[in-house]
């Protein structure tokens, strides 16, 4: 119990938030690493997943990517990259985080596109829409909830993995846990863990709210047609 009170004391003391190794800086680093990785992963994965889904090809590829991603430990990849050619540093962390964000993004956007009612696509074609129009005005809006779910999974995964990045001397909130364990400062370990947990839950909740907000449109449309 004393560790918990110690952790809360550490969290509520102003000085632990300030400075180059304070909570504010570490939080900023964590968000930077997460944002950059998810951004790059989206730029790479969404066109691939959406493209494959639109064409209806490469399904096994899209699905196996995420199965392999699950079997490979994030920790192992981080360490392999760190002692390998990339060395310690932010580039390594962002590379590893991006790799792990790609899998859920590709899979979910692919599945989202494939789950679009074939009848809706047929109808759109029958109305004379071109392939690009079908993609933009029918498939994408209908696949959006699934794509956003992929984004949410990817973001939560990246927030979690960014914590492990502290092992390879990366920044971020995981540093409090890893350094705290090394220096036997239990209040920091637990305090850091609380921060990480809260951040992950916040990101999850915010993206859930966002997907609710954005996927409201197709739902009302379907209600009107029913």
């Amino acid at each position: 119990m004393s560790t918990l009170t110690g952790a809360f004391h550490w969290l509520t003391t102003g000085s632990s938030w300030r400075g180059g190794e304070g909570i504010a800086t570490r939080l900023g680093q964590h968000l930077m690493l997460t944002g950059a990785s998810v951004g790059i992963a989206c730029a790479v994965a969404l066109p691939v997943g959406i493209g494959l889904g639109h064409l209806g090809r490469g399904g096994t590829l899209a699905i196996n990517v995420s199965n392999i991603g699950r079997a490979v430990p994030t920790f192992a990849v981080l360490v392999l990259l760190a002692i390998g050619p990339l060395g310690l540093g932010d580039t390594t962390t962002i590379t590893a985080l991006t790799l792990f964000a790609i899998a859920p993004l590709v899979t979910n956007s692919y599945v989202g596109m494939r789950e679009v009612d074939p009848g809706a696509i047929e109808a759109a074609r029958g109305m004379g829409m071109s392939g690009a129009q079908v993609l933009r005005r029918v498939e994408l809006p209908l696949a959006l909830p699934m794509i956003l779910l992929g984004l949410r999974l990817a973001a939560v995964q990246v927030v979690a993995t960014a914590t492990i990045a502290a092992f390879i001397n990366g920044g971020g909130l995981g540093r409090f846990v890893v350094d705290g364990l090394a220096n036997n400062q239990r209040d920091r370990v637990v305090g850091g863990a609380i921060l990480v947990a809260v951040l992950a839950l916040l990101v999850d909740g915010l993206l859930f709210a966002l997907s609710r907000l954005l996927s409201g449109a197709p739902r009302t449309r379907s209600r009107a047609s029913a």
């Binding site: 119990m1 560790t3 918990l4 927030v159 979690a160 993995t161 914590t163 492990i164 995981g174 846990v177 364990l181 239990r186 370990v189 637990v190 850091g192 863990a193 609380i194 990480v196 947990a197 992950a200």
Partner: peptide, 11 residues
């Protein structure tokens, strides 16, 4: 995150 989970169980 798993790391946080392990750390939270420490006490």
């Amino acid at each position: 995150p798993s790391l946080a989970f392990f750390a939270l169980l420490l006490p």
